[in-house]
Write a protein that binds this DNA or RNA. Structure first.
Length: 182
DNA sequence: GGCAAGATCCTCT
DNA sequence: GAGGATCTTGCCA
């Protein structure tokens, strides 16, 4: 585990989230290695954020959000898709960053096979998760020693744009969606 | 035990 | 641009 990376996850989630842009996410599965550059994220501030899954307290579903920093929270969206978050809060703070989109660096052919299509491989939270081969099995693992690894990204990074979050009905106006413009 | 809503994606018009 | 797929969670009776 990288100390520098772990420190990137410390602090208020709305500050941590843009810091994840430009980092790399890697999975190595039997179906092949894949790696993406993170280009879009959203911050969810646990108990103080009405739009967060953890807002109502801990349940079996969101238990991973209450885990230690760097834990993956993978949940099923609309009964069909998997979406993944990286937990950034410490004990008692179920804050997490939703990974919404990325750019394929390694294994685009593998992603295309997993996605069943050749285009729009990683331009949405459900698509990104599927392209990396991540499912509920990865829920509760960590990005330090689990199937999904967080790695330093190439420098320099591009420009970061903040805008309102997508697909939620509460706290809609908070500009906690961050996009990397290269 | 039933029901409505959800941090989405794809296809068709 | 609109609608359907598909299932888990949480609320209420």
């Amino acid at each position: 585990m990288s100390l520098a990376l772990e420190r990137l996850l410390e602090g208020p989630v709305e500050d941590v989230a843009p810091g994840l842009l430009g980092l790399r996410l890697r999975t190595e599965l039997p179906s092949g290695p894949t790696e993406v550059l993170i280009t879009e994220v959203e911050a969810y501030a646990g108990g103080r954020d009405p739009a967060s899954h953890a807002y109502g307290g801990q349940t079996p579903r969101n238990a991973s959000m209450f885990g230690r920093r760097g834990t993956l929270y993978v949940y099923r969206s609309y009964g069909i898709h998997w979406c993944m978050n990286i937990v950034t809060g410490g004990p008692g703070d179920p804050s997490a960053v939703l990974l919404r989109a990325g750019r394929a660096l390694i294994g685009a052919d593998v992603m295309a096979r997993r996605r069943g299509r050749a285009t729009n491989l990683t331009d949405g939270p459900g698509k990104l998760t599927q392209a990396l081969g991540v499912t509920g099995d990865a829920d509760g693992s960590t990005v330090w020693d689990g199937p999904v690894r967080l790695l330093q990204g190439p420098e320099p990074r591009g420009q970061i744009i903040a805008s309102p979050r997508v697909g939620i009905s509460k706290a809609v106006a908070w500009p906690w969606r961050f996009v990397l413009v290269e």
